[in-house]
Structure formats: C-alpha cells, structure tokens
C-alpha cells in the first residue's frame, strides 16, 4: 500500500453495519482507495449502525439516540466517508430532519451532514482521484441504488471511476434506476413483492450479458446476489469499491464460496 508523504486530511470511515458484519473486504477496499488518494483513514470504534432501520420503521426514539451516538463518534474528522448511498443518505438527509427541533443537536447534525460523503462521490468530487494501472477484464453492469441516486446524487461518479479500469466494459441494464426490492426491512416484511422486484432486476442484469454486477450499496448487492445464487446464475456481484481497489479478483464474490 502506498504511503503518501503528506496527508490531505483525516477521513473517518463509516463502514456501515452490513460491511462490518458481512463484507469487511468492502471496508478495506474503501480504506485503501482513500489512502491511495492521500488521506489518513481512521475507523472510529464507537460506530455500529446509522439507525436507518429504526428511522424507516417510525421508531424515532431509537433513531435519535443512535444519530446522537454517530454524531459524537464522528466529531472532529475532516470528512466522513461511507461506502453506501443508503447509510450516507441517512446521515446527510435524515439526521438533520430528525434533530431539527432539538436545540442542542440540530446544528451538530447539519454540521456532520456537511462533512459526510458517499465513497465514489468523495473520490471523484473531493479527492478528484485519477485511477491508473487498474485492470479488470470482463463485462460489468451497474445497479444504481435508490438512496444513492436520489438522496446523494450518485450516478456518474462510479461510472467515471470505472471508466479508468482497463479491460472493463460497462453495459447498462434496462431500468438501472428502478429499485431492486431490498428496501431495508421491506424485503422481509413483504418477501413476495421483494422477490418479484429482485427477479425483475436479475432479468435486466442477465439481459446485458454482463458477467459481473456492481453497486455501491451492500443491501442491494446482498439482495441481488442472493437471488442470482438461488437461481444458479453465474453472474458475480461485487461492491464497486472492490473493483476500484483491485481486490475483486482476490476475494470471492458476494454469495460465492472459497474454491
């Protein structure tokens, strides 16, 4: 790993609970990219989850407690970077809403929101990172996660970064902006509807002929990969950071075993 001589600032990585629990390789890939871009990366130990499950289920009491915990844990860093549009959106859009009327916390919530970035957007717009020497042979297709797309404006950034990867062909799927049916707790509260949506998504992925599907949110990826594997489809699923960090070849794809 390249050590830069002078740090461009300290980034606190909010790994998200899904990455923490199920796919640490995404956390390491994100950290590696941030370090490559010249930042010092720290992973505050007091992070667990952003509180979205509570917030989206109307449990504002728990959501508020957790929001305050996150605000406290991430004080003082230059940037907070999240390899997820969904958890990122919770911090940037929903914390300020949740704490709007709390005189002690409203400003802190807005301030945190101002420092928080989704990973690919940070790499493109703040770090202005130019990736070089990256290779990944194959055809990929990219799923736009809904929160990333609509709450954080993520669409062109991951595509721009992937454009620098040699040997990689990006084929857009139909309805790339349509929900995959994950929706947080939605997928277990309404499993049949969720299954229909993810089946549509898998059909669109397959129709491109891509061998790999990428996205910037692990929730969508688990949902999509879970369906792909249930149907015994050969398409592999990775978080976009894993391809950009060049670690996708090393780690088994989501839902795939060690050979």
């Amino acid at each position: 790993m390249t050590e830069t001589t002078q740090s461009r600032g300290t980034v606190a990585l909010f790994a998200t609970c899904l990455v923490d629990l199920f796919r640490p390789s995404v956390g390491f890939a994100s950290a590696q990219l941030l370090e490559q871009a010249g930042y010092t990366v720290d992973v505050p130990e007091a992070q667990t989850c952003c509180g979205q499950p509570a917030y989206n289920n109307g449990d504002h009491q728990h959501a508020t407690t957790i929001a305050k915990q996150v605000i406290t844990a991430f004080r003082g860093y230059d940037y907070i970077v999240v390899p997820s549009g969904s958890c990122g959106g919770t911090i940037t859009s929903h914390y300020p809403d949740l704490l709007r009327d709390d005189p002690q916390w409203a400003e802190a919530a807005r301030e945190l929101a101002g420092r928080t970035w989704e990973l690919t957007r940070f790499l493109v717009e703040v770090a202005q990172m130019e990736l070089t020497g990256l290779q990944h042979s194959g055809v990929i297709t990219y799923h736009d996660s809904c929160s990333g797309l609509r709450e954080m404006g993520i669409r062109d950034q991951p595509r721009a970064l992937l454009g620098a990867v040699e040997g990689l062909e990006l084929r857009e799927m139909a309805d790339t902006d349509v929900c995959c049916g994950f929706g947080g707790t939605f997928c277990v509260k309404y499993p049949e509807i969720s299954e229909r949506l993810v089946s549509n998504k898998v059909d669109n992925i397959e129709a491109t002929g891509a061998d790999t599907v990428l996205a910037g949110d692990l929730g969508c990826l688990f949902n999509i990969a879970g369906r792909l594997k249930r149907l015994d489809k050969p398409v592999r699923a990775y978080h976009v950071a894993e391809v950009l960090a060049g670690t996708a070849g090393r780690d088994a794809a989501i839902g795939e075993g060690e050979n």
């Binding site: 790994a15 199920f22 956390g27 049949e192 299954e195 688990f222 780690d251 839902g255």
Partner: peptide, 20 residues
C-alpha cells in the same frame, strides 16, 4: 422471509472492526 426466494450470502471470516 429472506431465504424463501433468495440465498443468504455468507459473511467473510470476521467483522470489519475486528479485522481493522
């Protein structure tokens, strides 16, 4: 509810926090 229509991807060896 998850596994009715989907496989559940297995986690990697340990948590990110622990590995970090």
């Amino acid at each position: 509810a998850w596994t009715a229509g989907r496989d559940f991807p297995a986690p990697q060896k340990t948590t990110f926090q622990a590995a970090w």
